[in-house]
Amino acid sequence: MNEKRKAVVLLSGGLDSATVLAIARAEGYEPHALSFRYGQRHDVELQAAKRVAEAIGVDGHVIAEIDLRVFGGSALTADIDVPHYESADEVGSGEAPITYVPARNTVFLSFALAYAETLGASDIFIGVSAVDYSGYPDCRPEFIEAFQNLARVATKAAVDGTMDLRVHAPLIELSKAQTIQRGLDLGVDYSLTHSCYDPSPEGRACGTCDSCLLRGRGFAELGLTDPALAAPTRLS
């Protein structure tokens, strides 16, 4: 019997990362989830990450503690209002919005690389998309390719020839609707996930931030209602 290959899966608790975790599991990997408490303004997404990890199944779940608030620069880590919109058509002008956290995916992937080397894993999964997104520069294919090239010269395991790291971004060319359909085909329960940038104190999604609107449009294109807006608030 072939031993399963280990993989590190970046798991925020959102729709995309839940889908990617399900994909890694379906492709036969032994997934080790990695989430972050990075100074984000709400903890509800980490509660969602725990629910998703339990539901889909992981072989380990690490929550790393870092504090990106020391730099600020984002509505997610500083005292800056999260922008709200009338519709998803207003989102994605090509410029990174104020919800962009400077270099966040670079930081997260660097931690994932360290975790992968410790595990003896050569595979990292990340749920970025360059189709339905808000203009974040670290969600583009050229960023993923550049980080993968960096990883191949940045670790002892790579230099020794025991790691040939591959960064998997299986959603990068999918629309939000296509991502949701892929997850539904794999049995993902999206009511467990949380994507909102500006939830209520009770953890309910606002429905009007860029993340909520892009997610909601994806469900609507499939003739579905986003369970984050339809379901009761889940705080644990």
Score class of each variant (00 low, 15 high):
117 E>I: 06
192 L>N: 06
19 T>V: 13
235 L>K: 13
136 Y>K: 05
41 R>H: 10
101 V>E: 07
128 V>K: 04
16 D>S: 03
54 E>D: 15
54 E>H: 13
159 V>Y: 15
206 C>F: 04
205 A>R: 10
115 Y>R: 08
68 L>I: 01
22 A>E: 02
112 A>R: 04
64 A>W: 15
43 D>G: 11
211 S>E: 10
224 L>H: 06
74 S>R: 02
124 I>D: 10
202 E>G: 07
189 D>N: 13
70 V>W: 14
10 L>T: 13
31 P>N: 01
107 V>F: 10
217 R>D: 12
82 V>R: 08
155 T>G: 14
59 D>L: 07
61 H>L: 03
64 A>L: 14
32 H>T: 02
65 E>Q: 09
109 L>V: 07
150 L>D: 10
37 R>G: 15
140 R>E: 13
92 G>C: 10
36 F>S: 04
166 R>V: 12
96 A>N: 05
72 G>P: 14
15 L>V: 10
59 D>C: 15
34 L>D: 05
43 D>F: 14
157 A>R: 10
75 A>G: 14
207 G>V: 00
221 E>F: 04
6 K>A: 13
218 G>M: 06
35 S>V: 02
74 S>N: 08
128 V>W: 11
130 A>K: 03
181 Q>W: 05
133 Y>L: 03
89 D>H: 12
226 D>N: 07
118 T>D: 11
28 G>E: 01
233 T>L: 09
214 L>N: 11
183 G>V: 00
158 A>T: 14
182 R>Q: 08
32 H>P: 04
166 R>A: 07
75 A>T: 10
56 I>S: 05
192 L>R: 06
48 A>L: 03
77 T>L: 02
163 M>L: 13
150 L>W: 15
197 Y>D: 04
212 C>T: 09
194 H>L: 12
153 V>A: 08
132 D>W: 05
193 T>Q: 06
60 G>E: 09
80 I>F: 15
33 A>S: 04
61 H>F: 11
3 E>Y: 09
26 A>W: 00
103 A>G: 06
164 D>H: 15
196 C>T: 08
45 E>T: 07
163 M>H: 13
59 D>G: 14
58 V>E: 01
99 T>I: 07
71 F>N: 12
73 G>V: 05
28 G>S: 02
230 A>G: 15
143 F>R: 04
121 A>D: 11
154 A>E: 13
91 V>E: 09
65 E>T: 04
27 E>V: 00
97 P>D: 00
171 L>D: 01
6 K>L: 00
22 A>I: 00
42 H>S: 02
65 E>P: 09
207 G>E: 07
79 D>Q: 07
84 H>E: 06
148 Q>N: 11
41 R>E: 08
93 S>T: 13
223 G>F: 08
80 I>Q: 12
39 G>F: 12
69 R>D: 02
33 A>N: 05
40 Q>E: 09
114 A>E: 06
149 N>V: 14
181 Q>V: 09
17 S>T: 07
211 S>H: 12
82 V>W: 11
157 A>T: 11
181 Q>A: 08
47 Q>P: 05
214 L>G: 06
